Computed example of a mutant assay.
Amino acid sequence: MRVLALGGIRSGKSQWAEADIARSAGPDGSVRYVATGAVSAEPEWAERVAAHRLRRPAYWSTIESADVPTQLRDEPGAPTLVDDVGGWLVAAMDRRGAWTDGRITGDVDELVAAVDAFHGPLALVSPEVGLTVVPATRSGRRFADELGSLNQRLAAVCDRVVLVVAGQPLTVKESL
């Protein structure tokens, strides 16, 4: 089952997705955790990353990579959590100069195809547009537009979509 967990900042979407994928893990409980956020020396960001690491069982494998499509294609049946799609989008926009005029259509197509082809338990975590801070800048609006479109495309290929609000999951889509 492919699950897209959406929510605002500090909504509990990552914690919900971690618990959900843990229930879907194999007999050994192992999960591949693909962390897309760039490593930063900023203390507040480092605290967020540390909190995420502390919540995960030590036997989960962590891969720090913005190349999510390759990670999904490499092990398309392994229980996998991607946290988060927004981090992946930032890296893709950086690579393609898409904050101004560059295009990420090919990157998005590749990600959506990799998610669609994935046949094991998969949880994707993504910020929901309008529930996150978006600066009143051209690049901020571009990010929101791209994220909204990406979330819609991912939701179309996922079996389940959940909106997490105050730590509580609200099922938006359920395919049986």
Rank of each mutant, 00 (worst) to 15 (best):
G87A: 14
G87K: 05
G87D: 07
G87N: 10
G87V: 07
W88K: 06
W88E: 02
W88A: 01
W88V: 08
L89R: 02
L89G: 02
V90K: 00
V90M: 04
V90I: 06
A91L: 03
A91W: 01
A91Q: 00
M93K: 06
R96I: 00
R96K: 10
R96F: 00
G97Y: 05
G97P: 05
G97I: 00
A98F: 10
W99V: 04
W99K: 06
W99D: 01
W99E: 02
T100M: 04
T100C: 01
T100V: 10
G102I: 06
R103D: 15
R103W: 01
R103E: 13
R103F: 02
I104C: 04
T105S: 06
G106I: 04
G106E: 15
D109P: 07
D109R: 13
D109M: 11
D109N: 13
E110D: 15
L111H: 12
V112N: 06
V112T: 06
V112C: 06
A114T: 09
V115M: 00
D116A: 15
D116R: 15
D116Y: 08
D116C: 14
A117R: 15
A117F: 14
F118Y: 15
F118K: 09
H119G: 13
H119D: 14
H119V: 03
G120N: 05
G120I: 07
G120H: 04
G120Q: 05
G120E: 02
P121T: 04
P121R: 02
L122P: 06
L122H: 11
A123Q: 14
L124W: 11
L124V: 01
V125R: 12
V125S: 01
V125F: 05
V125K: 10
V125M: 09
S126C: 05
P127S: 14
E128Y: 09
E128T: 08
V129Q: 12
V129T: 15
G130A: 04
G130N: 03
L131I: 00
T132H: 01
T132I: 14
T132P: 00
T132K: 05
V133G: 13
P135R: 10
A136S: 09
R138L: 11
R138C: 00
R138P: 09
